[in-house]
Amino acid sequence: MNRRVLPYLLSLPALIVCIGIIVPFVIAIYYSMQRYNLALPYLRGFIWFGNYQSLFTSSEFWKTVTVSLLYTVFTVGIELFLGLGTALLLRRPTTFNNIAAILLLLPLMTAPAIASLMWKLMTNPGFGILSYLISLVGITNFKWASSPTTALFTVILVDIWVYTPFIMVLLIAGLRALPRQPFEAAELDGVPRTFVFFRITLPMLMPYIITAVLFRLIDSIQQFDIIYAMTQGGPGDSTLVFQVAAYLEFFQYTNVGRSAAILMVLWVITYVLSLVFVKNWRRLRERAHGAV
């Protein structure tokens, strides 16, 4: 009957798009098990887990893993701290707070690649305003993204600038959606405010925090735009994260197999994270929209 067929008919286009995405994904799995270098086509062949084996035994790859994890932990950690702090400052829906919250969203609406470009101009050793400002406090010769020792710090800084507002805006919404009674009761009882924060606010906000953090973890570990636009993974391999490494492997060394293998490793990590994410996210969705 019509009623049986209709839902399938309606979701058919979306299904086709899904298939169009799944096909390259399957091809990627296939490539990751091949010796496949565009420059050496006659060497192409199926080698099972050869690419993975060589990845896991290569120090370069472990450097990539380390850099990616450092990048992720620092960006998400600092963003959570700053975002939660800002959300608490802007918690009450006054006109000033609302305007401030909207203005603070602007970095998030900036294209990350463009954000890198902005910071590049500001950290230019010749005329950059930031280079000038830190020279006022006596730090000269700070090379920002051009030095291997400070490049990772610089890209993390840009990530914090772009994505802290994401956590902030989710947590403001979360804080404002919390029921009032526990807080009123605590205030009447004269409960100390640090106690209220750690025993009432934080536990009740936890689903929002977890959702926001998982969102960020998944995005951060696969960050490409900011790093590619700022340093292209350099200098050396100091900012070489998963996706940038895979990109260079593909386009610079034309090593399709190895590039696909790097991405598969990254995919497994994000997949595990997204499984945890979906559980929390569903719970919040049900709260926002009634049962799914």
Partner: peptide
């Protein structure tokens, strides 16, 4: 199938874009 498509779309949102783009 609907739930499956919806969650596939969701997981696409979280997959590394290069994994799809390079192939």
């Amino acid at each position: 199938l609907g739930e499956d498509i919806a969650f596939t779309l969701l997981s696409i949102r979280f997959a590394p874009p290069l994994l799809i783009l390079l192939p």
